[in-house]
């Protein structure tokens, strides 16, 4: 059982606070993704779990054991680094075996585990090579194989795919998912790429400014963002927001009345794909049309705001045309203007 329990973890560098009292519970065998823009504190949090950084306050437990003050090697973790950190002076075999040799495992066992993990990552043919003779993708595979060979209770990954080119990233993503699903290791994965987060995670923890703003399943994070920030950060294109004005029995949004929750001030949010052409709705002038294959991304001007819609590419749209789009009622979200928090309808 390797649960991870993070309680009140705070990290300050001088006057700058990188993490503000983080609380996070990660279940055994769960794949949790820490998602956020650069500088949000996600890597700092991962390094605190790894033991490479120590928190200014708070505690970390792995598998129920207090590890806050233990060095990385006593935590039962292994890690994949952003720049791979494959040792250049060792062969691929010795790189994968590094952790096993440190544990003083028997020679036969080392050999068995190295071959098995190299097989999983399809690098059996590279075992005698050095890092300098490998491509970026191959180095990445070595780094993952080295982490898996430890048979750790917790696997930590710091933006492992960010240095690969787009096509290779797609391939490695699928491969990682299948390998990790099989190994059933509790995994914490840091990324700034929301597609990566969506496709890999059991749960996503969205981080912003040193806080965790939402922890939920990928679909939940997408459909029901906890804050305006999450709605604007997740989804490509992101959620549309329009100011709402309180009127008798509801809210006036871009000239149209909607029923909404009672609050002091609200913003109206709708995802671009949740808009359909209709007789009545948001009317706006088409500014940009971007065909994307299956869909087209239409940017309009609604009530002076940029407003994006994803429409079927068969629908004819022309520049300058005034398009009227209606939001799917069940997909409308409301956010408190002052706090940015989602308000249930």
């Amino acid at each position: 059982m390797a649960t991870i329990s993070i309680k009140g973890v705070q990290k300050s560098y001088g006057t700058f606070t990188a993490l503000h009292g983080i609380d996070l519970e990660i279940a055994d065998q769960e794949f949790l993704v820490l998602l956020g823009a650069s500088g949000c504190g996600k890597t700092t949090l991962l390094r605190i779990v790894a033991g490479l950084n120590s928190p200014s306050r708070g505690s970390v437990k792995i598998g129920g054991n207090e590890v806050t003050h233990l060095p990385p090697r006593s935590r039962g973790i292994s890690m994949v680094f952003q720049n791979y950190a494959v040792f250049p002076h060792l062969t691929v075999f010795e790189n994968i075996a590094f952790g096993l040799r440190m544990q003083k495992l028997e020679k036969a066992e080392v050999e068995r585990r190295v071959r098995r993990c190299a097989g999983l990552m399809h690098i059996e043919g590279l075992l005698e090579r050095y890092s300098g003779q490998l491509s970026g993708g191959q180095r990445q595979r070595v780094a993952v194989a080295r982490a898996l060979a430890m048979e750790p209770s917790v696997l930590l990954m710091d933006e492992p795919l960010s240095n690969l080119d787009a096509l290779l990233r797609l391939e490695m993503r699928a491969e990682l998912k299948s390998v990790l699903q099989e190994s059933r290791t509790t995994t914490v994965y840091v990324t700034h790429d929301q597609v990566e987060a969506m496709s890999l995670a059991d749960r996503i923890a969205v981080m912003h400014g040193g806080h965790i703003v939402q922890v939920a399943t990928p679909i939940e994070v997408y459909r029901n963002p906890a804050t305006r920030f999450v709605g604007g950060f997740i989804g490509s294109p992101p959620m549309n927001f329009l100011p709402a004005e309180a009127v008798e029995g509801g809210w006036q949004v871009a000239g149209k009345r909607y029923e909404g929750p009672r609050a002091d001030g609200l913003e109206f949010g709708i995802r671009p794909e949740d808009l359909e052409p209709a007789e009545a709705g948001f009317a706006g002038e088409v500014r940009v049309i971007e065909p994307l294959g299956a869909h087209q991304l239409v940017t309009m001007n609604v009530a002076g705001q940029l407003f994006r819609a994803v429409l079927d590419s068969d629908r004819r749209v022309s520049l300058g045309e005034t398009l009227t789009l209606a939001p799917r009622p069940d997909r409308v979200r409301w956010f408190d203007t002052a706090s940015g928090l989602a308000v249930a309808a």
Binding site: A50, G51, L52, P71, P72, R73, I77, S78, M79, F81, Q82, N83, A85, F87, F98, G99, M102, Q103, R146, M150
Partner: peptide, 23 residues
């Protein structure tokens, strides 16, 4: 020497002395 090599060694179980000798 990039810091990550030392950190990787640390994560993969090397004591400070082993890190010095092996990395």
């Amino acid at each position: 020497i990039p810091k990550e090599y030392g950190e990787a060694a640390e994560v993969f179980g090397a004591s400070p002395w082993k890190r010095f000798i092996k990395v």
